[in-house]
């Protein structure tokens, strides 16, 4: 179980890095007064939803 969590944490870091690169591009290269913040908001919501949701379900499944 410990090994699995370590592998998971490493892969999660990769995923977070990937997301950071995406968000960096939006913030760095956005045009003045465009609506990129809305897209970033939705994107972060989905990413956090997926991560928190999957961890929550995994914890529940482990405890049952």
């Amino acid at each position: 179980m410990t090994t699995m969590i370590i592998i998971y944490a490493v892969l999660l870091l990769f995923g977070a890095g990937y997301a950071t690169i995406n968000i960096f591009h939006i913030f760095r290269f956005r045009l003045p007064n465009d609506h990129a913040y809305v897209a970033v908001g939705i994107y972060l919501l989905v990413v956090l939803g997926v991560v928190i949701g999957s961890i929550s379900v995994a914890v529940i499944a482990f405890q049952l």
Partner: peptide, 26 residues
């Protein structure tokens, strides 16, 4: 339960990478 928890964790990670991929294309 460990296997089920692992499936959910790594399934979530897979979805995360798919979402990231689509966002990059966007």
């Amino acid at each position: 339960p460990e296997v089920e928890a692992g499936l959910w964790l790594f399934g979530g990670l897979y979805v995360l990478f798919v979402v990231n991929f689509f966002m990059m294309q966007w």
